[in-house]
Design a protein around this nucleic acid. Sequence first.
DNA 1: AGCCCTCGAGTTCC
DNA 2: CTCGAGGGCT
Length: 787
Amino acid sequence: MSLAAAVRQRAAELRARIEAHNRAYYELDAPTVSDEVYDALFRELQALETAYPELITPDSPTRRVGGRPLDAFAHVTHRVPMLSIQTETDTQASGAWNFDARVRKELGLGEADPPVEYVAELKFDGLAVSLRYEGGVLVQGATRGDGSTGEDVTQNLRTVRDIPLKLKGNVPAVLEVRGEVYMSRADLERYNEQAAARGEKTLVNPRNAAAGSIRQLDPAIAASRPLRFFAYGVGVVEGWPGGAPATHSALLDSLEALGLPVCKYRAVLAGPQALADFHARMGELRPELPFDIDGVVYKVNRLDLQATLGFRSREPRWAVAHKYPAQEARTRVEAIVVQVGRTGAITPVARLQPVFVGGVTVTNATLHNEDEVRRKDVRVGDLVIVRRAGDVIPEVVAVVFEARPMVPSPDDLFTQVPAHPPFILPRYCPECGSHVVREEGEAVARCSGGLVCPAQVKGSLLHFAGRRAMDVEGLGDKLVEQLVDQGLVRTPADLYRLEVATLAGLERMGEKSAENLVAALAASKTRSLARFIFALGIRHVGESTARTLADWLGSLALLRRTPQPILAVLPDIGGVVAHSIAAFFAEPRNEAAIDALLAAGVIPGDEHPPRAELGEALAWERLYGNLGVPRLTESRARELALLFPDGADLARESALAARLSSLPQAVSAALVDWLGEADHRALLLQTAELRATILAALPEPGPGPARPLAGLTFVITGTLPSLKRDEAKALIEAAGGKVSGSVSKKTDYLVAGSEAGSKLDNALKLGVPVLDEAALLGMLDQQGETE
DNA sequence: AGCCCTCGAGTTCC
DNA sequence: CTCGAGGGCT
């Protein structure tokens, strides 16, 4: 029998056995093999499939969840968000007291009350993940992501030996385990020795090793890395046999009993002194631990007290990370250079003598802005203390002034003066020679060159092609550099005219890469409207604002001719942002650049009519309010709106407007003044015209989707039993309601799930009615039917 | 007028 | 990750 045939047969056999075990486990509730055997079978099959991808069958047990050829990870929404833990800023022992004091105050405990019981654990330096077990079988694994949405990395997590594919004992129906994937220091060293011997890339530090391995699209790579796992918490839990644990320590013990690895360095402690002692003891032990930690974590042990304490925005009030001081190192500043960003922002950066700190070699450190450099008085030649802020971004902490290079003063040879002058921001852009200007009250200085400045041109092209914008794969900084310097590309539209022959002539560009890039560009032509708007790089318009614009206005054509006052009616868009957008589209060069993109075949996807709510938002009083007429308050605007219900007349009859209304004399005068200017009159006319166009384009009221919640404002808090937060939000918005972030007097209803925090307290205080999920669905349903 | 929160923008290193 | 700015609410 050939090797291939033997492998195929073995794979089929493994599949059959795993399926049989799954059936026994799920349906008959009678495990037929030990977990170790099951794990071994599964991993063997997985290894075979990785080595011989042609053997993969669509129904293979390895494929069933998250199993698909990976070109990108799917997104996973965490029903119980993966929270970040607030970091106690004080790295000294007093950090423990600060935390204890906050907890006691929140719980309303006095001096006489007994100490609060905590669990102290280690804070591992790795990658936080969530593992979902259904009926005790691992079905999905995800990264933390931004806390509410992560990436589906099930296949990679399955290759981690510490992660059981099946839990032991009395398993809950559903259990999401939260924990950290890490690599031990010894394993990292061993791996690097072998990798170096094979001539492969080595891993820099354990944290990057863990994060990098799990985010590999090819599970074979993750499988080849010696990753480990520690569990430290749970997310969604359903059907815990005998009831869920009542304390965090009991929870950890239960996780251990289920076969999950839990770090043994943990303790139940009472009072702040014990916490501080734990912090100190672990600090001493830290160098000898087999893995990296960056601090310890304290959690209130009783889960009912945790619920009482609740959350402060995204962070639990019942837990805190007490870190060890960040590793610092000293090095010399070789030079201070300035970088020019895509918006022209001039940023000073310190070029450092390479220094190893916090697991990586640092050669650059940002100095943020002129004031920052002045405050710290960083100069060329200085010895500086460098650390990695939040263990990621290098930062200059301070200058060691005693070690500053000095020279004799030219005036008085017996006096020493610094060898280098204080840093001064250049007055002209180093890239294009344009003036550098710093607006009154702004921290950043900017190059005024605009499109003349090659740095800004390059920056905007990179932004345009970026992953979160048009997502053109293969268009990196080196390539953009060449394209711009050789005069091949000036505007985004030029990119779409590039040909394989031209590209293939560039450095580090072969025929194949050139073809790929042209294909990637072609593929990017139909990105969504929101991405397209974001890609334009309008100041103050990031991802989120771009989405708002796309969502509300629905088309590029409408966006292009929407005047400032109407823009300012949209949620989260105020005067500054609206002005920035209107000014962008009023600039002929930008107009031309967009026309050129459309001519090149770029078609922003999913265009649709403007949102129905826009009609309500366009009420004239709000528009008047946004016009920027001096002293025209909301109530006065409302009066005008009644007088001139379609606005257009106001523009034509400005003098009459002032006379007819009962506005105070001063306001009338201001209004006449304001309207007297030709630009303002034109704006008002344009606004009136566009408002009419938008209203005409809006979906017909009456028939169409029922909008039972129109005009109501909701706030969602806690975890709802079946709906995800986003889903609840979408439902409310679809029914015409608005969802906002925090409870105020204007909130009509609070939708509260389990683990509701301060928002609930607030709602009760303000007398805002509180709904549960069922009640919300009831409102949607009932009124939806009657309308 | 002042506070809180979210969003934008810039940065580093692999 | 961090800072600063803008928006919205008290």
